[in-house]
């Protein structure tokens, strides 16, 4: 390995810290502790869950599964899932390090989900909404035909019932194993949102860590309000691709939620613990604006 100058070494260490390793579960007999990705502090797993998976020490937001997110957002016992049996199809017979069909099965087993998004209807502080929640642990939350179809279906249901749409994104972008069809989902979902817009149905987009690529460049950026979780990576191209393209280091905080807020792409950066209240206020406005 090439020798690094001292400042380079510090910079590298800082970058590594920023990128962070996946959180570690420290298995200590009797207890389950989790090491924070950012501040490295060991947190009692139950405390972390009780705090919506936000580090009590440094405020780092761990990723939530789709189910956890729904539980944190929708009033208890009001959620009805829609189209839970939509499955991806390996129509290209695509094989990289594993066949796509196997990747799907593995992800299904790992997550208990049929694909990278769960959609449904429910209430948020008593207000009826349609909701879609992506799950990064299903093939990096990539958007293929199923994600596109489900976003479109929930948008069409909201149009039909005249209820607001909320989508939580967490996605690495288009699912390359579906080739051009994954790209076309950008067109499909955006077309569905264009109908909501014409009908003045509110659409709230919440971007969580990470939201990049074709997902950002379609439905995630099209909210009447765009909201983000603190520190979430949000962008068109991933930071590695940009670095390779322009051959220079990226400034600190680049493509983080606060950066997008500063550059006018995001209305609100909201901590997870305050998200539901924030959404309630916004929905309350739209509910009353529509009546008057």
């Amino acid at each position: 390995m090439a020798k690094l100058a001292l400042h380079q070494w510090f910079q590298k260490r800082k970058l590594e810290k920023e990128a962070g390793p996946a959180s570690e579960r420290l298995d200590i007999p009797g207890n389950l502790w989790i090491k924070c990705t950012k501040c490295q502090v060991a947190i009692f797993a139950k405390d972390l869950d009780a705090n919506l998976k936000v580090c009590p020490k440094c405020g780092y937001h761990f990723k939530l599964s789709a189910r956890e997110r729904i539980e944190a957002t929708i009033d208890p016992e009001t959620f009805t899932e829609i189209s839970p049996f939509l499955h991806s199809k390996d129509f290209l017979g695509f094989v990289d390090s594993a066949p796509y069909s196997q990747r799907i099965l593995k992800s299904e087993e790992k997550t208990g989900l049929a694909d990278a998004i769960v959609i449904g209807e429910g209430e948020l502080h008593g207000i009826e909404v349609g909701i879609g929640v992506m799950d990064f642990s299903f093939m990096g939350g990539s958007m293929g035909s199923v994600v596109g179809e489900k976003v479109t279906r929930i948008a069409e249901i909201c149009l039909d019932k005249k209820i607001p749409l909320i989508i939580f994104s967490s996605s690495g972008g288009a699912r390359m194993q579906e080739g051009i069809m994954s790209l076309m989902q950008m067109a499909k979902t955006s077309a569905a949102l264009s109908r909501l817009r014409s009908a003045a149905i509110p659409y709230l987009s919440i971007m969580t860590d990470p939201t990049t690529g074709g997902t950002t460049a379609s439905f995630a950026m099209l909210g009447d309000l765009n909201i983000a979780e603190p520190g979430a990576l949000i962008g068109f191209a991933g930071p590695r691709v940009i670095e390779q393209t322009i051959r220079q280091k990226l400034p600190p905080g680049f493509q983080r939620a606060e950066f997008l807020e500063k550059h006018g792409m995001v209305d609100i950066v909201s901590e997870r613990g305050k998200m539901k209240e924030e959404l309630k206020k916004v929905l309350h406005f739209f509910e009353n604006a529509a009546k008057t």
């Binding site: 189209s83 499955h87 199809k89 293929g144 035909s145 179809e149 076309m184 989902q185 499909k188």
Partner: peptide, 13 residues
């Protein structure tokens, strides 16, 4: 709308 709405391959069962 129809053109792009119809794009995608999936199963539902």
């Amino acid at each position: 709308y129809r053109k792009y709405r119809n794009m995608g391959y999936f199963t539902e069962e």
